[in-house]
């Protein structure tokens, strides 16, 4: 009974957290990254930072909205299929309610200068939040003192921002590169002598 209660509490927490996050993801799916990191990595400690990046990669290469996909992965990780369903509900409820209200008087909403002033300023806030998370995560990768990830980071930025290369193509290429690196490293380790599999996992 106690365990059931604990599980229920987790679901409630998951629901309220995803709902709060969804209410503030202005400007596309990526805004969910700093919000997810703060809530689930830093505050609740349900996830590790690397996992958020993995989730975004999977969410980005699957069909559908990135924020919805990310919340499915998150919910499933935390509480299985019920968790995924609760996270979906939390994610889609705020935009549904807001859009339902707005669609009844959308012309006046769109032309309203107060609304425009507030939303324009919030966009500036979103920019600050994203710069912060990019700097922190980018620093995490630079700090590993490996050349390949840093080169990949710079090349991908140029490819996405300037050349608009398909994101799915980039993810596939980087995955192939990563697999090749891991296989070469493990082959080299076998040659140099036995090493525990756990070492591989840490890389």
């Amino acid at each position: 009974m106690d365990k059931l209660d604990k599980h229920g509490n987790k679901l409630v927490k998951l629901f309220t957290s995803t709902m709060l996050i969804s209410t503030f993801t202005f400007g596309g799916g990526y805004v969910i990254v700093p919000l997810m990191k703060k809530k689930f990595v830093d505050e609740l400690r349900w996830l590790q930072e690397d996992e958020t990046l993995d989730y975004i990669a999977i969410a980005q290469s699957s069909p559908g909205a990135v924020a919805v996909n990310a919340s499915i992965l998150l919910g499933y990780r935390i509480a299985g299929v019920p968790g995924a369903l609760v996270a979906i509900l939390g994610t889609i409820l705020p935009p549904m309610v807001i859009l339902s209200v707005i669609s009844y008087f959308y012309l006046s909403f769109q032309a309203n200068p107060v609304v425009n002033a507030v939303l324009g300023a919030m966009r500036a806030g979103v920019a600050a939040v994203i710069i912060n998370v990019v700097v922190r995560m980018g620093w995490g990768i630079v700090r590993q003192r490996k050349i390949v990830p840093v080169v990949v980071m710079l090349a991908v930025f140029a490819a996405v921002y300037f050349f608009k290369v398909s994101i799915i193509l980039i993810i596939l290429l980087c995955a192939a590169l990563g697999v090749a690196t891991a296989l070469i490293e493990s082959a080299r380790e076998k040659k140099d002598g036995p090493s525990s599999d756990d070492d591989m996992r840490k890389i």
Partner: peptide, 28 residues
């Protein structure tokens, strides 16, 4: 936890940071 999966994910992570950076620059 598989080596191949670990490698693939490690290869993708820096790319994801750059995708977020690109979106952030557009918003900025």
């Amino acid at each position: 936890t598989m080596t191949v999966m670990q490698g693939a994910l490690a290869g993708i992570r820096p790319a994801v940071v750059s995708m977020i950076a690109s979106a952030g620059l557009t918003i900025l």
